[in-house]
Nucleic acid binder design. Sequence first.
DNA 1: CTTTTAGTTCACAAGTTAAAGAACCAACTT
DNA 2: AAGTTGGTTCTTTAACTTGTGAACTAAAAG
Lengths: 155, 155
Amino acid sequence: MPVQLSDKKLELIEELGMHFEKSGMQPAASRIFALLMISDQGELSFEDIYGILNMSKSAASNSINFLIASDQVDFITKPGERKRYFRCKLKSLKEGVQKMLESMDVFNSILKKVLEQRAEETEEFNKGLEDVVSYLDFMKMELPALFLKWENLKK
Amino acid sequence: MPVQLSDKKLELIEELGMHFEKSGMQPAASRIFALLMISDQGELSFEDIYGILNMSKSAASNSINFLIASDQVDFITKPGERKRYFRCKLKSLKEGVQKMLESMDVFNSILKKVLEQRAEETEEFNKGLEDVVSYLDFMKMELPALFLKWENLKK
DNA sequence: CTTTTAGTTCACAAGTTAAAGAACCAACTT
DNA sequence: AAGTTGGTTCTTTAACTTGTGAACTAAAAG
């Protein structure tokens, strides 16, 4: 029998899951990842997962494997048991934020290519683009220092 | 006849368009928005757009209207002409970055709710979560000042 | 060696998205 | 008033996504 969760937790799984969905993760994987963050059990079995979330074994299997492959979930085993117990890697959350900031930088480098290709005559538009580029450049330059500041603050 | 674009520009439209797609925009809208950023004509007609991008009138019409509704594109008209000339609103780019940062904050507030629901016994995990929350809190607090710093630097 | 456990894989159904094409319509031209 | 221009809307189609259930498999238990 799978662990039972309070209604509040089940609601939170929906809310958090929706958030992951919005940022591009598949629905089933989003729920599973949310569940692993919300359940008080440090780790859950395969049966727990598809039982609590009321999804088919195949949906659970595929999504769990996706989450493992994308380094967002890992698992432990217990001596004498064949089951795997899955848990979310919190580290992946901060890495997710990191990736978001990196994608700003990818965008910026495309913008720079756009600027190179644009005719000089369209001065006003180009200035607008340069403004965005300079903003993103600045962010990229300053964020590492900001991160350090936070690390120091923690101590 | 629609305006013709160099191969380099057409490639860039693909690259930039792909980037918008990845961040959730529909394919046709992504190409149109990219085109409006890359074309040297300050603004393009309906015919230009579906002609250059080789898409149906309906695809173009729907996507243009979506872009207008979501405030990413606007248009001008010329005296004595019925055509509309569409152009991208660069302001929407910076607003896009802004929205991304705001979504970090929404995420953070869900994380806080998760923390409230978690049992105290799972100390290590909770500490990890608190760490992420504190990181996001810090970012939210510091980013406005960073933005001001950039604005002053520009002058 | 037969059954159970812990999953995986496959074949399919259902739903969603994206685009095409044709018909349509309103405003302007001739 | 008949045609043309600049789109819009509707219907259909193709493709992709998501998930189900059933069959399968490999390891362990009885």
